[in-house]
């Protein structure tokens, strides 16, 4: 169970602080709904530990994550863009998700190859992100998130700006993950994304 309890945050100069509160279970997808500027990305960054809340707590399986650094939190983020290290090739980008020092076993490498193949990216392992299309980059980012095998996925507009075909592929991947018991927190403007992926909605 992921529980967000009275999480309060304000940027410096912001008079009216945000307060977040929701809960979600493994295998569920909760959609964060709200106008732009309502704090969707902020909430996801608070969960990931990129921002420090003023008060409140985040619980995962009854344990507080409040004082956990980002690298010890059981979650992976996928943003709308800038998900990849531009100077490293596709294989390395994914591999760094499996081991932060790229110490990969032959099985790991095999898994990367198969994953790339499964989303129609075979032969792209040595390419740089700059050489890929937006949809291809997003597939790589999602593969890395999946192969990292963390119980929570934080999705911040992951499908925005992609063409129809790419969206369909990625939605399929996400649904598979949900079926495997991954908890997803989804921030999306898109009505279809929420309808297809989400089980519940948290309105900001």
């Amino acid at each position: 169970m992921l529980e967000v309890k009275n999480l309060v945050f304000a940027y410096s100069g912001q008079t009216d602080p945000w307060s977040f509160q929701f809960a979600a279970a493994p295998g569920q997808c909760i959609a964060i709904h709200g106008a732009s500027g309502s704090g969707k990305s902020t909430l996801l960054n608070l969960l990931a530990g990129f921002l420090e809340p003023r008060s409140g707590d985040i619980l995962w399986q009854q344990e507080s994550l409040r004082n956990c650094p980002p690298w010890h939190r059981p979650m992976t983020s996928v943003f709308q863009e800038h998900n990849l290290f531009e100077h490293l090739n596709v294989e390395t980008n994914i591999g760094l998700g499996i081991h932060p020092g790229l110490k990969l076993t032959p099985q790991d490498r095999q898994a990367i190859r198969e994953a790339l193949q499964s989303v129609g990216l075979e032969g792209f392992s040595k390419r740089l992100p700059g050489d890929l299309s937006g949809g291809q980059r997003q597939r790589v980012a999602l593969l890395r998130a999946i192969l990292r095998r963390q119980p929570i996925l934080l999705l911040d507009e992951p499908l925005t700006g992609l063409d129809r075909e790419a969206r369909d592929t990625l939605r399929q991947l996400l649904l598979e993950q949900k079926a495997k018991g991954v908890l997803m927190v989804l921030a999306s403007h898109d009505e279809d994304d929420r309808r297809i992926l989400a089980d519940s909605t948290y309105n900001l």
């Binding site: 990931a48 992976t76 998900n83 100077h87 490293l88 760094l96 932060p100 020092g101």
Partner: peptide
């Protein structure tokens, strides 16, 4: 190193020597 890369690296645990090796050294 841009903030997006820094955040990713933090999340993936690419710290210390690994950060130098994979993020700084190539650039």
């Amino acid at each position: 190193l841009d903030s997006a890369s820094r955040q990713q690296a933090d999340q993936l645990g690419i710290l210390g020597w690994y950060r130098w090796r994979w993020l700084h050294w190539p650039r």
